[in-house]
């Protein structure tokens, strides 16, 4: 968070003209005044991009923290725990993200959520000792609501990815681990999960890009991410609609493309030698 503050200061200290190599006039001359408008406001949009990226990361993280255990429960749990996880999953996967987000923003009392998070963190610190994490206090409510909505919806999908990956590991792996005296939990931890994580990369890749694109829906609760900021801009200069949206579409495209290539790289990097992925 400190890094971001520093970056913000940097961006305000330097006028746009100095950060960018081409002057506004030049852009206006060659591409017309609508592109000049986009160019003039590019750092406004770039800060929206930062919000978009941050929101994606926090949501994916929350989705992983909730989704991985949920997937494990669906794969190995029994009885009530599994039934409850499934019900929640159906609920979250069957409702539009827009409705979920409106819900977390208007209905869910953020104070109580933060309070619960605070208690959770304290109890973790009680067990593990001091952690570097604190409950955010100066983050906009819309950001928290959007993170909760995107995070838990993503958890519902990530749980399916992990459940499928865990279930796809041959039963013989578990038996072999048990046969050398490992407990069930040790076998899952050291044998099943490392293999399942590798197999869940393609699904995770897909999920990552979905969350990235769906951060745009935080527009509905007025969070100043990329799409909201572009909306602000083209309602200001209505002739520049196409230019503004093309510009942010390019940013989204670069982000999704970059994410996919990065995860491809990760997947190759950790691939098991000799196995075709």
């Amino acid at each position: 968070m400190e890094g971001i503050v520093a970056l913000t200061e940097l961006s305000t200290a330097l006028p746009a003209g100095q950060l960018l190599p081409v002057s506004e006039e030049q852009v206006g001359q060659y591409l017309g005044e609508d592109w000049e408008f986009v160019y003039r406001n590019s750092d406004y949009l770039l800060w929206g991009t930062v919000v978009t990226i941050l929101l994606t990361l926090t949501s994916i993280l929350l989705g992983f923290l909730a989704g991985f255990p949920a997937g494990a429960i669906e794969a190995y749990g029994s009885g009530y725990s599994r039934a409850i996880v499934r019900k929640f999953g159906v609920l979250l996967r069957g409702t539009p993200i827009l409705v979920i987000m409106i819900f977390t923003f208007f209905v869910l009392p953020i104070d109580i959520v933060l309070g619960a998070a605070e208690i959770g963190l304290r109890s973790i610190e009680f067990v593990l000792g001091p952690t570097p994490f604190t409950v955010p206090t100066d983050v906009p409510e819309a950001f928290i609501a959007a993170t909760i909505a995107l995070g838990f919806r993503s958890a519902a999908y990530q749980s399916q990815i992990f459940r499928g990956a865990l279930g796809s590991i041959d039963e013989g792996q578990m038996e072999a681990a048990r046969s050398i005296g490992m407990s069930r939990l040790e076998a899952i931890r050291h044998v099943i999960v490392p293999q399942a994580m590798r197999r869940s990369v393609p699904g995770f890749q897909n999920e990552f890009t979905i969350v990235l694109k769906d951060t745009s829906i935080a527009f509905a609760i007025g969070l100043g991410e990329l799409l909201k900021r572009s909306h602000d801009l083209f309602t200001q200069q209505t002739t520049a609609v196409l230019e503004v949206i093309l510009f942010i579409s390019l940013i989204y495209f670069v982000l999704t493309f970059g994410t996919n290539r990065t995860l491809d790289y990760v997947s190759n990097r950790f691939a098991i030698p000799g196995e075709s992925s």
């Binding site: 694109k213 769906d214 829906i217 799409l227 572009s230 209505t238 609609v241 495209f253």
Partner: peptide, 19 residues
């Protein structure tokens, strides 16, 4: 396919609606 899958649906709707 890549261009359309790489950008948010809401942005696509905005292009069509506001242009």
């Amino acid at each position: 396919t890549e261009l359309i899958r790489g950008t948010p649906l809401l942005a696509q709707l905005f292009v069509l609606y506001y242009t």
